[in-house]
Design a protein around this nucleic acid. Structure first.
Lengths: 140, 140
DNA sequence: CAGCATAACTAAACATCTTTATATAAGCTA
DNA sequence: TAGCTTATATAAAGATGTTTAGTTATGCTG
């Protein structure tokens, strides 16, 4: 039982690692990185969101997202406008939209490749299991 | 189809992130970190292994493992002896063994907690799917 | 209004990891 | 033996992330 849990943990890590590496490498061709593209994607999903909200959406701390957003702003991919209170609202620039779109094409290809090892049914099962694992954890 | 793959990717990342956070936080109580404990575990599994081998076992680059091993050596948890060629052989010190054991107790508890959301059968299915995903990828 | 609570951003230190480049040891081969 | 190849390690720079500790803006409450 013990060994099985440790193996499960390692399997999750390994899967995530492969995915991360594959995406990050491929995104270089579009001149971006996984962390940055993921941030662009999050901003695109919630235009005007605060750094705090976006940090949560991308699974990291506010500070980490803050420096990332700084790099994106320096590249003119993101615009940060002051909002209510200390809030800062994030929006994609046209250049940011372009990088996001280019990255999406790459990511779709890479992810398809990553998961092509599993037939459709199994992939669906996997998604279901992970979804349950993650949502049940949230309650906890 | 596209959206489903992206969601799958995010689900994997989220599961790994939770696990990482939970383990890392809990391991603080034993005075170590997830990265360091994982390195100790890898060394314990293959005593005398080179940095290169251990880097692969812990899913990272040689350089990353090198600095990690440096920190562990500084803490007297690991001993590095010169081997054949430029090879460096890694062994746990008695203190390292102790930290490893203490961490194992913590990790077992945390992992059990992490995956308790899923019933036994589902957990087994998840492990099977991940295992297949990872091994099939290796061939590729 | 004064004090406190909450939300949100920032700073500094440091751990971790990657990339790119370089160095060194052994073995093989011509 | 000289040169190539392979295995292994290290260095330096920078990206990414966490922790701990502020700072600032708003709102609430007495």
């Amino acid at each position: 039982m013990h060994g099985e849990l440790q193996e499960l943990g390692r399997a999750v890590k390994q899967a995530q690692y492969r995915q991360h590496r594959a995406l990050d490498s491929a995104l270089q061709a579009v001149g971006t990185t996984l962390a940055q593209w993921d941030a662009l994607r999050a901003i695109s999903r919630s235009p005007g969101a605060s750094a705090r909200e976006l940090a949560a959406a991308t699974f990291q701390t506010e500070q980490a997202f803050g420096t990332l957003a700084g790099r994106l702003t320096a590249q003119d991919l993101v615009e940060r406008r002051p909002g209510h209170g200390r809030r800062i609202e994030h929006h994609l620039t046209p250049a940011g939209e372009q990088v996001l779109a280019a990255g999406r094409k790459v990511a779709d290809r890479v992810l398809a490749d990553c998961f092509s090892a599993l037939p459709d049914t199994d992939r669906a099962t996997l998604l279901d299991l992970l979804r349950r694992l993650n949502t049940l954890q949230e309650a906890h």
